[in-house]
């Protein structure tokens, strides 16, 4: 089947039916419902993260077309297809690099990056470090299930020591990454952990993270019911404790680090660390001082400018 729609046809159809510009339409959670339903396994923790994102965005009053969700590859990275924002489903591990380019080219967009622990802390580890130190103004939501799910159950950078997986049948020999202290020393300006089983808490943290100016990490425990039989809902339910309940001061770096290292019978969730005094990369970039998003500017240089460039070469 071949149709012949062209850009000109689209211009023909370019007047919205009721005459109201989309930016004035009231948003609800349904505004963020994607074109298709998620293809995750029944019971997957990622459902809760998707719902929480939709709630957070609608409660913040963001317009869907002003947001973009960028993912890498993996089960959780299928999320952009299930949420009604602009989306990019990029390459395994590369979402943060793509998202940095997107944010710098259009700093008026709300940029969210979604993915898994393997995507972000394994293959994408280098970009993770550098995106944090640059304080790129985006929200990175990691659905951390401590396993490679889409490849059917191999060890991940956050798999526990000794964990038996299909690639470590005798138990994992390697220490896991702890994303909380890593992000704090790496330069992230908002570092939080949440649990998909505590929906209201997750929504609240996502709202704070999206509103935060700078790089925000939300590492969400999102159990894989199919391939991770160790870190289950029951396992997390017994362990997670809200930082808010312990009177944690999120502006105290050393206390935040100490809390970040806590792991075992009690695992803190909540906002570990936040600082609001650092400019974001787009704040620092003089090219963005005026003129709106780079992506929408007129191309080319003037004759005066090119004459000046030529004079240097003569």
């Amino acid at each position: 089947m071949t149709t012949t729609t062209t850009a000109a046809d689209i211009v023909e159809k370019s007047i919205i039916s009721n005459g109201i510009p989309l930016s004035n339409v009231e948003v609800t959670r349904d505004s963020y419902k994607g074109k298709i339903d998620p293809d995750w396994c029944p019971g997957c923790g990622d459902f809760g993260v998707l719902t929480a994102m939709q709630k957070a965005l609608s409660e913040l009053g963001k317009q869907p077309h002003e947001c973009i969700t960028i993912s890498g590859i993996g089960c959780s990275s299928n999320l952009p297809g299930f949420i009604n924002t602009y989306g990019m489903h990029t390459l395994h591990g590369r979402a943060l690099a793509v998202a940095t380019g997107m944010k710098m080219a259009n700093h008026e967009l709300t940029v969210m990056v979604t993915g898994g622990d393997g995507d972000g802390f394994g293959i994408g580890g280098n970009h993770f470090l550098h995106t944090m130190r640059r304080n790129v103004d985006l929200t990175y939501i990691v659905m951390d299930n401590q396993i490679y799910g889409l490849t059917t159950g191999q060890t991940s950078p956050t798999s526990a020591l000794g964990m038996e997986t299909k690639s470590t049948p005798e138990g994992n020999l390697e220490n896991p990454i702890n994303p909380m202290p890593l992000a704090m020393v790496g330069g992230a300006t908002f570092v939080a952990r949440a649990y998909t089983g505590q929906q209201a808490h997750l929504v609240d943290i996502l709202k704070q993270a999206i509103s935060h100016k700078g790089f925000s990490l939300v590492d969400v425990f999102s159990p894989c019911v199919t391939y991770n039989k160790d870190n289950t809902y029951q396992w997390f339910k017994a362990r997670v404790k809200k930082l808010e309940d312990s009177g944690h001061d999120r502006t105290d770096f050393h206390s935040a680090l100490d809390k970040g290292y806590m792991w075992g019978d009690e695992i803190p969730i909540g906002v570990f660390w936040q600082r609001e005094d650092l400019p974001t990369l787009n704040d620092l970039e003089p090219v963005l001082d005026e003129g709106g998003p780079l992506a929408y500017r007129t191309l080319g240089i003037t004759k005066t400018q090119s004459d000046s460039l030529m004079t240097e070469m003569m």
Partner: peptide, 14 residues
């Protein structure tokens, strides 16, 4: 790797 992916992000933005 980051270069090309960042360039694609900016290009996709327009």
């Amino acid at each position: 790797i980051g270069v090309m992916n960042m360039v694609i992000g900016a290009a996709h933005a327009g």
